[in-house]
Simulated assay, not measured.
Amino acid sequence: MYVLTADQRGSRTGRDLVPDILADGSPSGLLRPFERTAGDEVQAVFDSPAGLALVAIDLASSGDWSVGIGIGDIETPLPPSTRAGRGAAFIDARTAVEDAKRNRWHLCIVGESSWCASAQTAARLLLDVLTDRTDAGHEAVSLVAQGLTQSAAATRLGISPQAMSLRLQHARWDIEPSARALFTDLLTVANIGVDA
């Protein structure tokens, strides 16, 4: 099982972003929804890694959140309220979010499986790709991700196809899908508990 705890960064000087997360719908694999646990912190429980991976990377790459993922057992039956949950995954998520506050990626993964370290490394490499992108790179990747051809995206941006190709290359857009898949796969293995 997966528990994600996220703590808003710089909440004393910015607006409260917790309501945005609470209103953001239900990502796939969400077993218990995000709830405010204390102040500017939220927590959710996932039973599958795909939605978790997407949410964790989006939160950490925004620069607004420190993200901790705990992987392990939880006490069942799981109560209706997320914050009433108990078990190793909840404890590990708390440890992870505290560690995440002290590193440049603002994301940590903690659990019993040695595969947690591999999942964390994959997430951090993906975060390096995403946070290193320029605004122009994000815009170019977004258009191609929406299904536009590179030529059509270039036309929309008012740039040449060659310039579009360079933007995408510098944004490292071609590695992002496989990096996301790797992160999701490693979360799966870490949850199964198979150790090398």
Rank of each mutant, 00 (worst) to 15 (best):
M1I: 03
Y2Q: 02
V3H: 08
L4M: 12
L4Y: 04
T5G: 04
T5V: 14
D7M: 00
G10P: 09
G10K: 10
S11R: 10
R12L: 13
R12T: 11
R15L: 13
R15S: 14
D16V: 07
L17M: 12
L17E: 12
P19W: 01
P19L: 13
D20T: 15
D20L: 13
L22C: 05
L22W: 09
A23I: 05
G25M: 10
G25P: 00
S26N: 11
P27N: 10
S28C: 03
S28N: 11
G29F: 12
G29M: 07
L30H: 01
R32K: 11
R32W: 06
F34T: 06
R36V: 04
R36F: 03
G39A: 11
G39I: 03
D40C: 01
D40L: 08
E41I: 03
V45A: 09
V45Y: 00
F46A: 11
D47E: 12
L52W: 05
L52V: 11
L52E: 02
A53S: 14
L54E: 13
V55C: 09
A56F: 02
A56I: 06
I57G: 00
I57E: 00
D58C: 08
A60Y: 08
G63M: 11
D64C: 08
D64K: 03
S66Y: 02
S66M: 05
I69W: 05
D73H: 07
I74S: 04
E75F: 07
P77L: 08
L78D: 00
P80Q: 11
S81A: 15
A84Q: 14
A84L: 13
R86Q: 14
G87V: 09
A88T: 13
A89C: 02
I91T: 15
T95G: 06
V97F: 00
K101F: 06
H106K: 10
C108Q: 14
I109Q: 04
S113V: 05
S113H: 07
S113A: 15
S114E: 14
S114Q: 14
S114I: 12
S114P: 09
W115M: 14
W115T: 13
A117V: 08
A117W: 07
S118C: 13
Q120V: 07
Q120S: 13
T121W: 11
L127M: 11
D128T: 09
V129H: 04
T131V: 10
D132G: 14
R133K: 13
D135M: 03
A140Y: 01
V141K: 02
L143N: 03
V144Q: 03
G147H: 08
L148P: 00
A152P: 02
A153Q: 04
A154T: 02
T155A: 15
T155G: 06
T155D: 14
L157G: 09
L157R: 15
S160F: 06
Q162L: 12
A163E: 03
A163T: 14
R167H: 12
L168V: 08
Q169V: 05
Q169D: 09
R172A: 11
W173L: 02
D174V: 10
D174R: 15
A179G: 04
A179L: 15
R180I: 08
R180P: 03
F183R: 03
F183L: 14
D185W: 05
L186E: 07
L186R: 11
A190K: 02
I192G: 01
D195C: 11
D195R: 15
A196F: 15
